[in-house]
């Protein structure tokens, strides 16, 4: 098993936007010590090369080895206590799918994984904090709310500035992923490249148009897929408009904004 020596997160000094995480680890195999690092970064962030990272790794290793045994008390540190199941470097945890994934309901659109193309993206639930039963239940409810919204509302009320939904991935009667159009760039990351001008007025007008659509123009389908006569022009609120939930794609030379992430989207007046 590997032991984490240090973990660092990089943020943009001006926008405070997340850029990358680096994890430096140690493991022993056949009596030989190995050190390594894992790095996760957002798109368009220049990668460090190994030479730049080496001094950081060396310092982390030296600090870890020089610590008195008594101070090595954090789970996952070199010679520290055993980590619990589900923790970083700990034993794997198996969840009951019923507690994690929403049920596939009759009338939902199943999308077969074999038909996935490079133009599509599968949104899957993040399970990182699902060890906590309260958090697990919350996340399942977000996933439930989002698939229901795509299936009964957004699929039948498409808009140029809202991500297109193609169906859901189903495993053993549970919805394990949503199939959406793949969108190349998050608005947050687009803003880091100021060398390319951005038509701010146009982007804001497009997001406003998507919001007007959500707020005033939607109808809801009933369980048979028919228009629900009582549910016409139902206002919905996105409730999580921010730089990370707007994606940017291109239509010719024009940059097009698309709203994503509808797991907080509810009918106007309903509690979040």
């Amino acid at each position: 098993a590997a032991v984490v020596l240090a973990a660092m997160q990089g943020v943009d000094p001006e926008t405070k936007a997340y850029l990358h995480t680096t994890i430096i680890f140690y493991h022993e195999k056949d009596g030989v010590e190995h050190h390594g690092f894992l790095r996760r970064s957002c798109a368009d962030v220049p990668s460090w090369n190994l030479d730049a990272l080496r001094p950081v790794v060396d310092v982390a290793i030296a600090q870890s080895h020089n610590k008195p045994q008594a101070d090595r008390s954090q789970p996952g540190e070199l010679d520290g206590p055993q980590v619990s199941p589900g923790e970083l470097n700990g034993p794997q945890v198996y969840f009951n799918p019923v507690e994690v994934f929403p049920a596939f309901r009759p009338g939902f659109t199943e999308f077969k994984p074999a038909n996935i193309t490079p133009e599509l993206y599968i949104k899957r639930p993040q399970l990182l904090f699902s060890m906590d039963p309260v958090e697990r239940e919350k996340r399942k409810s977000y996933a439930e709310s989002e698939v229901l919204l795509f299936e009964t509302v957004l699929q039948h009320n498409e808009h140029d500035n809202i991500v297109k939904y193609h169906g859901c991935i189903v495993v053993d009667g549970r919805v394990t992923g949503l199939v959406l159009e793949k969108l190349p760039e998050m608005l947050l990351m687009r803003c880091l490249d100021t060398t390319r001008p951005l038509n701010v007025d146009d982007i804001i007008a497009q997001v406003q148009s998507a919001l007007d659509h959500l707020h005033t123009k939607l109808h809801v389908r009933d369980k048979d897929g028919d228009k629900d006569a009582a549910m016409v022009h139902v206002p919905f609120c996105h409730n999580d408009i921010n730089m990370q939930n707007i994606m940017i794609t291109k239509n010719g030379d024009r940059e097009v904004a698309k709203l994503v992430d509808f797991d907080s989207c509810v009918r106007e007046g309903l509690p979040l």
């Binding site: 804001i204 919001l211 707020h215 206002p235 509690p271």
Partner: peptide, 25 residues
Amino acid sequence: AAESCLRNDERGLQLVEEELRKAFP
């Protein structure tokens, strides 16, 4: 509650616009 729900979106868009104008003055 309904009014504040719509205001949520308006406020969100307002903050996005501020960020964009900062990045692309």
